[in-house]
Amino acid sequence: MEAISLLPLMTLLQLVFDTLLGFALLWLAWRALASPELFQAIVLFIAFGLLMALAWVRLDAPDVALAEAAIGAGLTGALLLATLARLEVKNRAKSELEKKHEVRVITEKSKHQTFFFLLRMLLFMVVATGLVYAVLTLPENTSGLAMPVLENLESSGVSNPVTAVLLNYRGYDTLLELSVLLLALLGVWSFGGIPKPYRSFPGPVLNMLSRLLIPLLIMVAGYLLWVGAHAPGGAFQGGSVLGAAGVLLLLVGWRLGTRFVGLPLRITLVFGVGIFVSAGVVFILLGRQFLEYPPSFAGVLILLIEAAATLSIGITLAALFLGGRPEFRRHK
């Protein structure tokens, strides 16, 4: 009896929670994009990532929440902070002038006719309203592809539906997406060497922290990879936690030995896509379709591909954080 009478209150609480979260998201995004100071904008953006992960939790998408927590809030934030630091160090003599310039641009813009401002706002309101209207008229109960995904789960080799979609049904997308990650690194490396080497040494606290944290991160990466077969987790989540371990190593001043910087590093970076493509092609030669795994050992194969992908994703993300080709050292 009691449970039933509490149900409306529960729904109300949920609604209040969602509304508050929704407004907080919009407000954070707005403040992050409008704040006059870049550092503040980035901190707000990191907070925005945290709340996004909460939204994924509320929408019953734990796999996405994991990815967002690791990549959206974690690694992207670290990347932004590092870039900002480099931007500010690089031309610190100019920075005062720069700031004046920025302020001048802002004041000029605010002097610029309010009419155009209102016109722009109106335009954006119309666009937003149009989109909201379009969304509201969507048919309510399209279950999408949930049914076929679940029906074929048996022969996919894993029991977590999201992993089944990522690595089996739509494995081709994932293959191309791993290529995008590798390509981004290639692009960054083609720009040249590491922008600015840091010479400061980590203090005792940081040293201790990293010694404790890095093994833990690597262990969690392995756990996420393993658990992905039947629960939220998988190669991307594991890979980005591994990447975070790499970032931490780089932050405390560790660098890869010059012996490993050449071909061994490149092989590790290519490993994920390489294994994926080879697995696909081998099955063509065996008379099956590209990336068509036999159900009997699909599970093992997916774990193998995911393990390779986790390693490559982790190393690639850490290398992206470094921001340039490691073998190339620029002198001051």
């Binding site: 998408a61 990815a67 949930a146 995904v149 999201v162």
Partner: peptide, 16 residues
Amino acid sequence: AVPDPVPHAMVITGIV
């Protein structure tokens, strides 16, 4: 009901 896993996978791809 269960959530549709395909958009979840699409979003993970999108995040990467």
